[in-house]
Amino acid sequence: MQYHTLLHVISGYLYEHYNALATSSQIEKEHARLELSFSPEIMEEIPFDQLEQSIKKILAQPHNVYTKTISRAEAELKKAGVIKTVIHLLPASLNEIRIVQINDIDEQTCGGTHVNNTNEIKDFSIMKIQQKGPAKKRIKIQLLD
Results as ranks from 00 to 15, higher is better:
Leu6Ile: 14
Glu96Thr: 08
Ser54Thr: 07
His17Ala: 13
Leu14Ser: 06
Lys57Asn: 15
Lys137His: 08
Asn64Ile: 11
Ser25Gly: 01
Ile42Thr: 13
Ile27Cys: 02
Leu36Cys: 04
Val86Pro: 12
Lys56His: 04
Ile70Val: 14
Ile102Lys: 00
Ser71Lys: 14
Thr118Trp: 06
Lys29Gly: 01
Ser24Cys: 02
Met1Arg: 03
Val100Leu: 05
Thr85Tyr: 13
Gly133Trp: 07
Glu30Tyr: 01
Glu30Trp: 00
Ser11Arg: 07
Ile42Trp: 05
Gln50Lys: 12
Lys57Trp: 10
Tyr3Trp: 01
Glu74Gly: 03
Gln101Phe: 06
Glu41Thr: 10
Pro134Gly: 13
His63Lys: 04
Ile46Asp: 06
Ile97Ala: 03
Leu14Ile: 04
Val82Met: 05
Leu21Thr: 13
Glu44Pro: 00
Gln131Ile: 06
Ser93Asp: 15
Leu34Arg: 01
Asn119Gln: 12
Asn95Ile: 11
Gln53Pro: 04
Ile55Trp: 09
Val115Cys: 07
Asp123Asn: 15
Leu21Gln: 12
Gln26Tyr: 13
Lys128His: 15
Lys57Leu: 14
Val65Ser: 08
Ala32Gly: 11
Val86Glu: 11
Glu44Ile: 14
Lys79Met: 15
Gly133Tyr: 05
Ser125His: 13
Leu14Ala: 01
Ile121Arg: 10
Ser71Asp: 06
Gln2Thr: 07
Glu35Asn: 12
Ser54Gly: 06
Val115Lys: 07
Ile126Thr: 10
Asp49Gly: 15
Gly133Lys: 06
Val100Tyr: 03
Pro40Tyr: 04
His88Ile: 04
Pro91Asn: 03
Asn117Phe: 09
Ser93Val: 10
Leu34Pro: 04
Asp123His: 13
Leu7Gly: 07
Ala92Tyr: 03
Glu41Ser: 12
Met1Pro: 04
Glu45Trp: 09
Asn19Tyr: 04
Leu59Val: 01
Leu6Trp: 07
Lys140Pro: 00
Ile99Val: 08
Phe124Glu: 10
Glu44Met: 10
Val100Cys: 05
Ser54Pro: 05
Glu74Arg: 12
Ser11His: 10
Lys29Thr: 11
Ser24Val: 00
Val82Phe: 06
His114Tyr: 11
Pro47Thr: 14
Thr85Ser: 14
Gln130His: 01
Ile99Ala: 01
Leu59Phe: 01
Ala20Val: 06
Ile83Pro: 09
Leu14Pro: 08
